[in-house]
Amino acid sequence: MWGFPLFPEQASTVAGQIDLLYFALVGLSLIFAGILPFVVLYLIVRYHRSMKADRSNPINSSLKLELTWSIIPFILSMGVFFWSTFLFFQINADPDDPLEIYVIGKQWMWHLQHPNGKRENNELHVPVGQPIKLIMTSQDVIHSFYIPAFRLKKDVVPGRYTTMWFEPTKTGEYHLFCAEYCGTEHSAMIGRVVVLPLPDYQRWLTTEEPAILPDGSTISTGVSSDSGGSMAEIGAQVFQQQGCVSCHRTDSAARAPVLNNIFGKPTSLASGETLTVDEEYLRESILRPQAKITVGYGPIMPTFEGQLTEDQVLQLIAYIKSLSDVDANEENQ
């Protein structure tokens, strides 16, 4: 308990930049909060009724002063605004070639799955010095994935994917918190982020360990186990089992678009719009196909809302992505 910190550790590429902005703001605040109280103190002592002072010709308005103390704070705050917005865009722009990890939040547990199929709960193992992207959703209420040492958080919202990326700069263990109030055991929805050197991370990926699935059952996970292999491989199985393949196929019986090489590419909708295929779009195409119809096809795809678990949807997406991105596919093996 003693020897408590007053400042959090910096362990991601953005942490230093955010701290810099923070200290700039602290500095600016000190100009006001550090000086103004002394001005006030000086004035209330200097002009206390017991003090002899020149009180003649008090003024009670001055346009010049008003303009000065409106415009200077305005300019300063605009400086902060541009700086912080620039950083904000940077934090939110996807990095090149990130390692993707899938996160499912539920009351009151984090479930994480690595592309090779390894799963873990309330812990996130990542390699140091690599951009990592989390693709997150919630099975129930809103949660928020927060790693103070990285200075990052993002809400984890049911019914959609949110993403967050970071690049750890230091090996070690860091707090993982749920920052959005999510019910009774909100404050127990915590864990740790373990940043490992790349070889250790790879070794960890292939060690077998038990994990709790989002549906509550326990399995043993790790590539060598019979938990089904990589996310894309499990996704391929789901694709078969759910009968997706009866429509989405490459032969002449196909009644639906081929899903090869669609991820990350533009797609045209019957409504005339063009969109880039991303996780959110795939999710919607699977769960609510009628919302966006691909041009040239009829609205015949059944809705899978309520029939697939969040886990399965993520696996299907990983599978569809693996049909597009050969590089990523290899890397994940």
Binding site: L28, S29, V80
Partner: peptide
């Protein structure tokens, strides 16, 4: 006078929270 002192601190820390990038870290803390 007490109001002025604390209001200045409250207002200035509001500027921290209005900085979107910084709010990513301190939001909900």
């Amino acid at each position: 006078m007490g109001f002025m002192g604390v209001f200045v601190i409250g207002g200035l820390t509001g500027l921290f929270l209005a900085a979107s990038a910084l709010d990513v870290h301190v939001h909900d803390t």
